[in-house]
Each structure stands twice: as structure tokens, then as C-alpha cells.
Design a binder for these strands. Sequence first.
DNA 1: TAGTTGTTTGACTGATCAATCAAATTATAA
DNA 2: TTATAATTTGATTGATCAGTCAAACAACTA
Lengths: 198, 198
Amino acid sequence: MSDIPSFIGKTRREQIITAAIEVLEEIGYIHISLAKIAKKAKISTGLISYHFSGKEDVMNQTLYYLIQKEWQFINEKVQEKKAPLDRLYMFIEASLLYQKTHRANQIALIEIIFHARSEDHIPYYLIEGNEEDDLLRQLLKAILLQGQESKVFASFHIDAVTTIIQGAISEYMFSTETKLDADRYASELKYLVHKMIT
Amino acid sequence: MSDIPSFIGKTRREQIITAAIEVLEEIGYIHISLAKIAKKAKISTGLISYHFSGKEDVMNQTLYYLIQKEWQFINEKVQEKKAPLDRLYMFIEASLLYQKTHRANQIALIEIIFHARSEDHIPYYLIEGNEEDDLLRQLLKAILLQGQESKVFASFHIDAVTTIIQGAISEYMFSTETKLDADRYASELKYLVHKMIT
DNA sequence: TAGTTGTTTGACTGATCAATCAAATTATAA
DNA sequence: TTATAATTTGATTGATCAGTCAAACAACTA
């Protein structure tokens, strides 16, 4: 009975998580507090402690929520395609589209990943997730492998190319100086990646 | 007299900055405090306030210090070469080498960039530096332009390629899962970038 | 109805921290 | 030497915050 999450508990937790995302986007991890999340969610501070074991728990569950959302968005679009090159192109397009349409989510994700550390002070961004953890990386690797096995892609180092493509996608968020909009960047990236892998 | 930074003031500030870098690497931006920096530097807390206007000032000056150090390291090596392709390869090699040999510096840099925000809460990582600010990006763009003008490189969108290469370099730090060491990754990246730009 | 469980409030506690400041110490100059 | 300025200390202050808890409230049960 007690370990089946009640409906009200589930929605309440989601309400708190979405409030946390908004506050993270507005003032960042450094200045976030349970009081500010509570105010945004229009509840009392005690209620957060009732539904979560602590601030760290809120942040961890928010991180998990954000990773899931992004993966669902991109994976769904990728599965629409079957051919490796189409999938790869869709992966790139969908990733950049998500950045554009879910900006607050991406900022909140960055805030957590780059601020949170495990108990022994290892930053989250340096923790090697047990392979399955980084869902997007796994998806991209699978696409590349599929392309090589079907001889559509040339021979190349899959881990290296995966890192390059993931980096190219992440970096777009930070290179604000350039006036390149997401669609244009996606086109260029698809063209350049194509040259790289064939 | 008073606006000429005294020698003792300069070395003291550098002592505080290097202590801050160590503490940032050990426990991160979230848990840093003036008391911890003071303890690491073996001085009193008041002395930090004497040489800096506040905690934010310490972090800003530390960030500036770290950016300068990295740029000096990479630019020096790039200037050893003259041909555009050699310069590009050296840029890639030196960037990845710096990550390997100055890991604490890179972690401290990440901690500041991804945690600090301006007074109006804009995160540092989204602030568009006035072109000259991002020295490394400017250096990379100049190399690519030089290569295109001398017809060594093909025609491509310079801003897009710049972002891709910068992303590929940054991402290496975060894709810990792969066993690829920095030298191997540098080789692969050079090879793949070559395919991309010719 | 009354009892029970689950949910919510908000004041409170103890801890941490940035910044201050009076006093002490050291360096420099006259 | 003495006076003046620069540097350094560390206790203190005021503010913020995470987490607690007694009490109130709501939903459900029998």
C-alpha cells in the first residue's frame, strides 16, 4: 500500500519538479532554495520535505525527469525513420529542435548536471554512467553501427564520431555569438557529418 | 600610488586565485566559501576581502585567470606552425593536451562558467562575449579563414565548422565512458575534421 | 457518525556563510 | 628613532537556508 505511489503524490511531485525547473531557469542552481521552489509551486516548504527526502532528492529527480523528456522527444522522431542516414539526420534535427523548443528544460538540465556532486564530491558531469545511463549516446551509437553494418557509412571510429556529433549539438547552445539559427546549423551539421562518415 | 597594483598585492591575489582553483576542483562552486579558500591559502578570511571586493570578484578574476592561461598555452603552440592545416591540427592537439595536463584548471573553469550568473541572473555560459572575448574561438576562426583564402581548405560555413570543432574538443572531457585516451581522440578528430573541410 | 490515514501548513531550529571592523602586525619613510 | 601607511587577523554580525514538527485539514472507511 505505502510503496505504491499514490496518484496525488505523483502529481504533487511532478508539480514540484516543474516548479524547480522554472526556478532553475530563472535564478540558477546557486540561488535555488526549497523556499523559492515552494513559492513558485504555491505550496509550503514542509510539503516538499513530505514528498522528497531533501533538496538533493528534488534535484536528482528533476534531473531524471529532464533526461527522460529529452530522450522521449528525440527517440520518438528517430524511430519514424528506418534508413541509417535518415535516422542520423533526424537525430541531429530533433536534438537541435529540442534545444530551441525546450530551452528552459535544457537550461535546468545544465544547471543540475554542472552543479551537483556525489557525496564524495565527484561532479555529475564526470561520473561515468553505466553505459545504459546515457540513453542519447547509446541511440546515436546504434544508428552509426547500423549504418556501418549496412555498408551505407564508411569505416570510422564509432566512439570518436559519437563524441564529435554530441559535442557539435551541445556546443550550439553555447556559441551564442553566431547568428546561425538552429535550422541553418542543423543543415550545415548534417552536410558536414555526411562528409565525415562517407 | 594606490591604483598601481603593489607587488605584494599582485602575488597575494594570485595566491588566493590558485587556492580558489584547488578548492573549486575539490568540492565545486556550490560548496566553496571564502573560509575554505582562506584555509587552503593559509590566510584569514578578512584578507580575501581586503584584496577582493567580494566572493563574486574572486570568482570573476579566477575565471579571467583560467581563460588567459588556456589561451596562452594553445596560442603559443599554434604560432609555432605556419601552414593552415598544421595550425588546425596543432589547435586540436594542444586543446586536448591542455585538458589532459591541466585538468584541475579545466574543472575550475567549468565550475565557474556553469555556476556564475550576472546581476540580472543571466548565466555566464549564455552571455555573448563581444567577439574578442572568446579568444579561442577567434583563433580557430582565423585559422579556418586562412585555410580557405589560401585554397587549402574547401568552401564551408566557417561559423558552423568552428562550433563543431569547439564542441568536439569540449565534449571529450564529458564522454568519460569511452576508453579513448586524449592522443587517440586527437588523431581521430584530426582525420575526421580533415574529411570535413577538404 | 466517528475513527483512521494521508496530506498540508508555517513557525522554528541550528547551521553556514559573506562581509565587517577594531586591533595587531609589518613595512616604509622621514 | 618615530610616524605613517599598508597589510593581516579573527571574532562578530546579520542574513539565508535545509530540514523538523506539532497542529490543522481533507479524504476515505466502516
